[in-house]
Design a protein around this nucleic acid. Sequence first.
DNA 1: ATCAAGTGAGACCATTTTATCTCATTATTG
DNA 2: CAATAATGAGATAAAATGGTCTCACTTGAT
Lengths: 184, 184
Amino acid sequence: MTSIMDARRIEVLHAAAELLALKPASSLAEIASHAGIGKATLHRYFSSREDLMLALGYQALEMVSQAIQNAQLDQGSAIEALTRVAEALVPLGDKLHFLLNEPTVDTHPDFKAAENNTLEPLYQLVQRGQSSGELRSDLSPTWILYILNYALFATWQSVHEGDLARREAPAVLMTTLFKGIATR
Amino acid sequence: MTSIMDARRIEVLHAAAELLALKPASSLAEIASHAGIGKATLHRYFSSREDLMLALGYQALEMVSQAIQNAQLDQGSAIEALTRVAEALVPLGDKLHFLLNEPTVDTHPDFKAAENNTLEPLYQLVQRGQSSGELRSDLSPTWILYILNYALFATWQSVHEGDLARREAPAVLMTTLFKGIATR
DNA sequence: ATCAAGTGAGACCATTTTATCTCATTATTG
DNA sequence: CAATAATGAGATAAAATGGTCTCACTTGAT
């Protein structure tokens, strides 16, 4: 009973994320319509807009978490591991895009903590890269994660805008991130 | 008469940009209040919300344009020139931040053109850097401008969040951008 | 000092959006 | 097949917001 509802909720969340990526100011009516359900049903799943947004946020975190697990961060060099995560994350742009803009989500107290929690493995990966000498040690891990995050957004936007081919996007992202834009 | 009103308008715009950077969904009442004026007066300056947002966008472009002119892009190496622009742009974070999220502004037809227009010198600077061999030629200038833009946002956010000292922000930004996060 | 212009506070209306509720219809389950 | 649960469409209320207007008050120019 709840399991089937959970499955349905997830479908709705994906539809919502998809629409919000295109139009961040979508109303609940639009979201329901885009998900192929009625307003009433949407409210049965998520009691308020904030509730929906929060669920959306946690779902996004869950997807990132999955990507991180699949990437097997402890295998191979730190750079290889980072590349694997990035490659897994780039296609998720649509579903993660709203995380940047939506104030509802990142002002919520618990959410920040959850976010830090799921990003923790990445943090440790960066530290491993610094210890092994692969990554610059004169940059703080926090800053490196920041720039990784925003570079991902740049990639998504660029692909969405048509300035960057989807196939080569991850490679361009990684070489830019690792080697920079200057010739050595 | 109009000149004094123009001056007042500009003050209001700065206050509005400041507030919107903190809370992108601010109502007109909040904006007016934060600017220290009444709702009615705000409407006397800007006849509608869209009007205000657009003025905000053009003001932001104007500030960027000024920064570009002051940076004397044709002087010295491309890297030096880029560094000068970035240093000028970093402190303007608050005023430019909303440019990323606000749909009102970047969907407007004329605005995109104006934006491309004021960014044109930067585009040429990047091309100069590629010709002189300072910047990688296997990256498209468009992509380089994208990543520069988002790296700036990362810097603003990072400074705002307290993770990066304002003084060293430009240097960190530029070395990350030019040399990347990997050890050569 | 006087007069005109501009301003602020808030009432007011129209519109949009969230949220609740009802009810007929459809699925589901036993 | 029958009973029960879930759904969709829409009516409705409640809240928020954009935009207009009035009016008393301040400011500044003459």
